[in-house]
Amino acid sequence: MSDVTALGEILIDFTPQGENEQGFPILVANPGGAPGNVLVALSCLGMRTEFIGCIGKDYFGELLVSTLQNKGVQTNGIVYSPIKTTLAFVHIDHQGDRSFNFYRQPGADMMLSKDDVDLSLIADAKILQVGSISMTNEPSREATLLALNYAKEQNKIISLDPNLRPLLWQSLEEAKEQIEALLYFADIVKVSGEELAFLTNTTDIFSGAKQLYKKFHLRLLFVTVGDKGSYAYGEDGLVFVPAAAVKAIDTTGCGDAFLAGVLYKLLKRDLLDFNIKEAILKQILDFGNAMGAYVATNKGGIPAMPTLHQIEDFIVVNKKEE
Rank of each mutant, 00 (worst) to 15 (best):
Pro162Glu: 08
Ser207Thr: 04
Pro306Ile: 02
Pro16Cys: 06
Leu168Asn: 05
Leu45Cys: 01
Gln74His: 08
Glu62Lys: 15
Glu180Asp: 07
Gly288Arg: 06
Phe206Gln: 01
Tyr264Gln: 04
Glu235Arg: 15
Leu182Val: 06
Ser120Gly: 07
Gly96Cys: 09
Ile10Met: 13
Thr202Phe: 03
Asp187Met: 09
Leu272Met: 10
Ala29Arg: 05
Leu308His: 08
Ile78Pro: 08
Ile26Trp: 00
Ala151Asn: 05
Leu218Glu: 03
Ala257Asp: 04
Gly23Cys: 10
Val191Trp: 02
Glu153Leu: 15
Leu164Val: 12
Ala244His: 05
Ala245Asn: 09
Leu160Val: 15
Thr85Glu: 01
Phe258Cys: 05
Lys190Glu: 04
Gly300Thr: 06
Asp97Pro: 12
Asn289Arg: 03
Ile122Phe: 05
Leu64Tyr: 00
Pro306Cys: 04
Ile311Gly: 03
Thr5Cys: 15
Arg48Gln: 11
Gly56Arg: 06
Pro139Ile: 13
Ala175Lys: 10
Arg48Thr: 12
Gly61Tyr: 01
Tyr80Met: 11
Asn275Asp: 13
Ala197Arg: 07
Asp118Tyr: 07
Leu272Ala: 10
Asp256Leu: 14
Phe274Pro: 09
Thr136Ile: 12
Cys44Val: 03
Thr67Glu: 02
Asp313Gly: 14
Glu174Leu: 15
Met110Lys: 11
Asn275Ser: 15
Gly18Pro: 12
Phe51Asn: 01
Arg48Met: 11
Gln105Tyr: 04
Lys126Ala: 07
Tyr184Glu: 09
Asp313Glu: 14
Trp169His: 10
Ser66Gly: 02
Leu87Glu: 00
Asn76Gly: 10
Cys44His: 10
Ala248Ser: 12
Leu221Gln: 06
Gln178Ala: 09
Leu272Glu: 02
Asn20Lys: 06
Gly33Asn: 07
Cys54Thr: 00
Asp250Leu: 14
Val225Ala: 04
Ile12Met: 06
Val241Gly: 06
Lys156Tyr: 06
Ile92Ala: 02
Gly61Thr: 03
Glu138Arg: 14
Glu278Leu: 15
Phe287Gly: 01
Ala88Leu: 09
Gly96Tyr: 01
Ile52Ala: 07
Leu145Gln: 07
Asp161Trp: 11
Ser99Met: 07
Phe287Leu: 08
Gly56Phe: 00
Asp270Ile: 03
Ala143Leu: 14
Tyr213Ser: 11
Lys114Asn: 10
Asn289Cys: 07
Leu146Arg: 12
Gly193Cys: 06
Lys210Gln: 13
Pro31His: 07
Leu266Trp: 02
Gln22Lys: 15
Glu21Pro: 11
Leu259Lys: 01
Ser99Trp: 00
Leu11His: 00
Thr67Tyr: 03
Thr67Trp: 02
Asp187Trp: 03
Ile315His: 01
Gln170Ala: 15
Asn289Asp: 03
Gln211Glu: 10
His309Thr: 14
Ile158Asn: 07
Leu63Gln: 00
